[in-house]
Protein backbone atom coordinates (compact mmCIF):
# COMPACT_ATOMS: atom_id res chain seq x y z
CA UNK A 1 0.00 0.00 0.00
CA UNK A 2 1.79 3.11 -1.23
CA UNK A 3 1.05 6.75 -0.64
CA UNK A 4 -2.53 7.87 -1.24
CA UNK A 5 -4.10 9.93 -4.01
CA UNK A 6 -3.73 13.14 -2.03
CA UNK A 7 0.06 12.75 -1.94
CA UNK A 8 0.33 12.25 -5.66
CA UNK A 9 -1.90 15.25 -6.21
CA UNK A 10 0.24 17.36 -3.91
CA UNK A 11 3.34 16.43 -5.90
CA UNK A 12 1.49 17.27 -9.14
CA UNK A 13 0.42 20.64 -7.79
CA UNK A 14 3.93 21.31 -6.50
CA UNK A 15 5.45 20.51 -9.90
CA UNK A 16 2.92 22.76 -11.62
CA UNK A 17 3.67 25.60 -9.19
CA UNK A 18 7.43 25.22 -9.58
CA UNK A 19 7.03 25.22 -13.36
CA UNK A 20 4.85 28.31 -13.43
CA UNK A 21 7.21 30.17 -11.11
CA UNK A 22 10.06 29.22 -13.42
CA UNK A 23 8.23 30.55 -16.49
CA UNK A 24 7.42 33.77 -14.68
CA UNK A 25 10.77 34.59 -13.09
CA UNK A 26 13.62 32.87 -14.96
CA UNK A 27 15.30 34.86 -17.72
CA UNK A 28 17.09 32.24 -19.78
CA UNK A 29 14.67 31.00 -22.49
CA UNK A 30 16.07 27.47 -22.19
CA UNK A 31 15.14 27.35 -18.52
CA UNK A 32 11.75 28.86 -19.37
CA UNK A 33 11.10 26.01 -21.82
CA UNK A 34 12.22 23.54 -19.18
CA UNK A 35 9.76 25.08 -16.73
CA UNK A 36 6.96 24.78 -19.30
CA UNK A 37 7.74 21.07 -19.52
CA UNK A 38 7.60 20.79 -15.74
CA UNK A 39 4.15 22.44 -15.76
CA UNK A 40 2.89 19.98 -18.37
CA UNK A 41 4.37 17.06 -16.43
CA UNK A 42 2.66 18.25 -13.27
CA UNK A 43 -0.63 18.22 -15.18
CA UNK A 44 0.21 14.76 -16.51
CA UNK A 45 0.82 13.41 -13.05
CA UNK A 46 -2.52 14.82 -11.93
CA UNK A 47 -4.24 13.17 -14.90
CA UNK A 48 -2.67 9.78 -14.16
CA UNK A 49 -3.43 10.06 -10.45
CA UNK A 50 -7.09 10.71 -11.18
CA UNK A 51 -7.13 7.91 -13.75
CA UNK A 52 -5.87 5.44 -11.11
CA UNK A 53 -8.16 6.88 -8.47
CA UNK A 54 -11.24 6.71 -10.68
CA UNK A 55 -10.12 3.47 -12.31
CA UNK A 56 -10.78 4.83 -15.81
CA UNK A 57 -8.43 4.80 -18.79
CA UNK A 58 -9.25 8.26 -20.19
CA UNK A 59 -6.71 10.10 -18.08
CA UNK A 60 -3.86 7.77 -19.03
CA UNK A 61 -4.53 8.10 -22.75
CA UNK A 62 -4.79 11.87 -22.27
CA UNK A 63 -1.39 11.91 -20.52
CA UNK A 64 0.23 9.91 -23.33
CA UNK A 65 -1.09 12.36 -25.93
CA UNK A 66 0.14 15.29 -23.84
CA UNK A 67 3.67 13.85 -23.80
CA UNK A 68 3.76 13.85 -27.60
CA UNK A 69 2.43 17.40 -27.73
CA UNK A 70 4.92 18.62 -25.11
CA UNK A 71 7.79 17.14 -27.10
CA UNK A 72 6.73 18.84 -30.32
CA UNK A 73 6.21 22.15 -28.56
CA UNK A 74 9.68 22.12 -27.07
CA UNK A 75 11.17 21.22 -30.47
CA UNK A 76 9.70 24.40 -31.93
CA UNK A 77 10.93 26.37 -28.92
CA UNK A 78 14.46 25.05 -29.22
CA UNK A 79 14.44 25.79 -32.96
CA UNK A 80 13.48 29.40 -32.21
CA UNK A 81 16.24 29.69 -29.62
CA UNK A 82 18.80 28.35 -32.11
CA UNK A 83 17.59 30.84 -34.74
CA UNK A 84 17.84 33.70 -32.23
CA UNK A 85 21.29 32.55 -31.17
CA UNK A 86 22.48 32.57 -34.79
CA UNK A 87 21.54 36.24 -34.92
CA UNK A 88 23.85 36.77 -31.93
CA UNK A 89 21.03 37.72 -29.59
CA UNK A 90 21.92 37.17 -25.93
CA UNK A 91 19.88 34.37 -24.35
CA UNK A 92 17.98 36.54 -21.92
CA UNK A 93 14.25 37.16 -22.23
CA UNK A 94 14.52 40.55 -20.52
CA UNK A 95 16.69 41.78 -23.36
CA UNK A 96 14.28 40.58 -26.05
CA UNK A 97 12.61 43.94 -26.19
CA UNK A 98 12.67 45.20 -29.77
CA UNK A 99 8.86 44.98 -29.65
CA UNK A 100 7.32 47.40 -27.23
CA UNK A 101 4.99 50.38 -27.10
Amino acid sequence: MGPGTAWYLSVAGFLFAVGSLGVLIRRNPLIVLLSLEIMLNGANLALITFARHLDSGDGQIFALAVMAVAASEVVVGLGLIVALNRKRVPLDVDRLSSLRG
Binding site: S20, L36, M39, L40, A43, A46, F50, D58, G59
Partner: peptide
Protein backbone atom coordinates in the same frame (compact mmCIF):
# COMPACT_ATOMS: atom_id res chain seq x y z
CA UNK B 1 0.84 30.34 -25.30
CA UNK B 2 2.50 27.27 -23.77
CA UNK B 3 1.84 28.66 -20.31
CA UNK B 4 -1.82 29.15 -21.20
CA UNK B 5 -2.06 25.61 -22.59
CA UNK B 6 -0.46 24.16 -19.45
CA UNK B 7 -2.97 26.04 -17.29
CA UNK B 8 -5.79 24.71 -19.47
CA UNK B 9 -4.38 21.20 -19.18
CA UNK B 10 -4.10 21.30 -15.39
CA UNK B 11 -7.64 22.64 -15.26
CA UNK B 12 -8.78 19.75 -17.45
CA UNK B 13 -7.07 17.30 -15.09
CA UNK B 14 -8.89 18.82 -12.10
CA UNK B 15 -12.25 18.71 -13.87
CA UNK B 16 -11.57 15.09 -14.82
CA UNK B 17 -10.77 14.33 -11.21
Amino acid sequence: GGFGSAVLLFGSALVYG
